[in-house]
Amino acid sequence: MALKPATEKYVFNIVGYAWVSIFAALCLIPFLMIVVGSFTEESRIVKNGYSLFPGALSWDAYRFIFDNPAQIVSAYRVTILVTASGTLLGLFVSAMTAYVLQRKDFAHRNVFAFYFFFTTLFSGGLVPWYILIVKYLGLKESMLALLLPPLLNVFYIIILRSFISSTIPDAIGESAKMDGAGDFRIFLAIILPLVKPALATIGLFIALNYWNDWYHAMLFVNKEPLFPLQYFFIQNIKQHRVRELLGLAELGRDRYAEGIVQAGYDGHRNGTDRAALSVRPEVLHPGPHDRRRQRVTPAAAG
């Protein structure tokens, strides 16, 4: 079927826009829902469910956060501190590693490069890493546990390395050397300014990693003043679900909810977060899934 170029372009534009727009809408709707939900009264959500039309506008959710800002401020402080220092440090170390790995006068540079690359292919896994950080480096309950583990990403080093070697001719470094610049001077005064575009991109990724990191906090941090933002969210969401279920129980909509609300209350009274933690979907549907108390048997290990 041969179409006229103009017709073909027309059809292509319609189909193309439709195709991308559908996906974009699917991307956007969850966000809209959350934003609208944040302005909806809690009781309304519990009664009517989430919807894209809030009805009456309510600032309760925001008031709830800002009435007691100490926690969220502390969480923001931790996250900003870790993100800023981690990004700067990570960029510096990555760029330096990348630069050294591509210097032609560095013997065995490919061996070292493969050594770095190998860690992405083969690693000890979660447990040795966890033991290393907790027992041998002693980083549990410290901000360093949030800062150091995500510091270096081998992929970023590889990207920077190929960027440096493809855009900066070796002659630049050599001529600087002839003019009497030391290695650090060459790196700081010549190489770094020249790789700025790559640094900006990689820096964005590193910063995003730090900003969105909750995993390291979950593994290594139990004290509230050290909670970064995302982990603070996790805690809050869990507590919030208890409250949502409480609202449900009042409405009598869900029989199970009453039991959970009770459990959640007990947890709060005891001041333990464990109970609040356990208010997850599995509690909604009681079954043989709570393995926390029993020793694993192969049958229960899943």
Binding site: I34, G49, S51, W214, F233, L284
Partner: peptide, 24 residues
């Protein structure tokens, strides 16, 4: 846009979309 959202928030979004009692 979603690339910049953490999985924590994505998880909350999923829960609000799909939960039985008041999910969207």
């Amino acid at each position: 846009l979603p690339y910049f959202i953490s999985w924590v928030v994505a998880g909350a979004i999923a829960y609000n979309l799909f939960n039985f009692e008041f999910g969207a």
